[in-house]
Each structure stands twice: as structure tokens, then as C-alpha cells.
């Protein structure tokens, strides 16, 4: 258990500054923003209690908010994402599959269910973030474009990160 928490903490400490310094500057055509730090929330173990995952998500979101000067936008969206994480997971995986207590990833879920799970989570998050921002601001067409482009961009980068970690594990096995 403590090893899992340590892993999560490490991923937060790695991804939040990376988001602030690198990914926030990687904006394509002023519409596609890679919100890579949600990998922290997406890859939380399924058996982790909702209370703990809500807390982790809120802290992660708040940290990103502080770096990005977006007062509460990401904190709110992360809380929402952590809350609907389990229902989304069970959309694509049956209940029995999560007893192993693994983190959702390509390796543990398989190719197609993980793609669907990741895409749904990314889309929901981008929708939440841009809707919350647009709540204070009226620009509907641009908002829609940003949601779609950001979802695609974020999806690709998180998928790449996840497959990288698979390859590393396989290499460790070989050794």
C-alpha cells in the first residue's frame, strides 16, 4: 500500500512541474493544450478508495492551478474526474477484473479497453476544464475546437508515456 502511495507521489512530483514548465508551453495552433498531468488520476489503482483518490486529485489540480494561475479551474475538474473514474472504468471492464489492485494501463487492461478508457477520461477532463473556463467567458465555437484538439493531443502524449513505461518493464524482465 505504502509503495503504491509512494509511486503516486512520485508521479505527481514529476508530472506537475513537467506540466507547468514544458507542456503548458507546448500549445499547438493556440487550440491544442496537452493536459498530461491527468495521467496521475487516470492511472490511480482501481481499488484505491474514492476518498483517497479525490484528495490526490484535488491536490494535483490545485498544484497545477497555482503554477498556471487558473484559480480553481483544474482543482474542480480533477475532483470531478476522480469522482467518475470508477464508473468509467467499469464501463469497459467487468467488476471482477479490478481485484488485482493494478493501475489501469495498457498492460493490465489490454489494448482496446485501455484506449477507450483513456479516451473517455481525457475527453471528459478537457470538456470539464474548457467548460469551466468558458463559464466565465463566451466563445462557444473556439471552446469546442479546443476541447476536441486538446483531447486528441493529450490522448496521444499519455498513450506514448504509458507505452514507454511498458517497454521499460519488459526490458527489466529480460534482464
Amino acid at each position: 500500500m505504502s509503495k503504491t502511495l509512494l509511486n503516486i507521489l512520485l508521479s505527481i512530483l514529476l508530472l506537475v512541474p513537467a506540466q507547468a514548465v514544458i507542456f503548458n508551453n507546448l500549445i499547438l495552433f493556440n487550440v491544442a493544450v496537452p493536459l498530461v498531468f491527468i495521467y496521475v488520476i487516470v492511472s490511480l489503482p482501481v481499488t484505491l478508495s474514492t476518498n483517497v483518490s479525490l484528495t490526490i486529485a484535488f491536490i494535483t489540480g490545485l498544484a497545477v492551478d497555482i503554477f498556471g494561475d487558473t484559480q480553481g479551474v483544474n482543482a474542480l475538474a480533477c475532483t470531478l474526474l476522480a469522482f467518475i473514474r470508477k464508473p468509467v472504468y467499469h464501463l469497459y471492464m467487468s467488476i471482477d477484473d479490478d481485484l488485482a489492485g493494478m493501475r489501469p494501463s495498457l498492460r493490465t487492461m489490454g489494448y482496446s479497453p485501455y484506449m477507450k478508457y483513456l479516451l473517455t477520461m481525457t475527453l471528459l477532463y478537457c470538456f470539464a476544464v474548457f467548460a469551466i473556463e468558458a463559464f466565465q467567458f463566451h466563445n462557444f465555437g473556439l471552446m469546442l475546437l479546443r476541447i476536441i484538439c486538446s483531447t486528441a493531443f493529450t490522448f496521444v502524449i499519455i498513450y506514448a508515456i504509458d507505452s514507454l513505461s511498458i517497454r521499460q518493464r519488459q526490458r527489466e524482465k529480460k534482464l
Binding site: T50, L54, T55, F58, G61, D65, Q71, G72, V73, A75, L76, T79, L80, F83, I132
Partner: peptide
């Protein structure tokens, strides 16, 4: 959930 949402909204 409600507590965190309320805190975020206060910031927002």
C-alpha cells in the same frame, strides 16, 4: 466530493 467542489468553486 462536495467539500472539494465547494473549495474549488470558492477559488474559481
Amino acid at each position: 466530493f462536495i467539500i472539494y467542489v465547494v473549495i474549488s468553486c470558492m477559488l474559481l
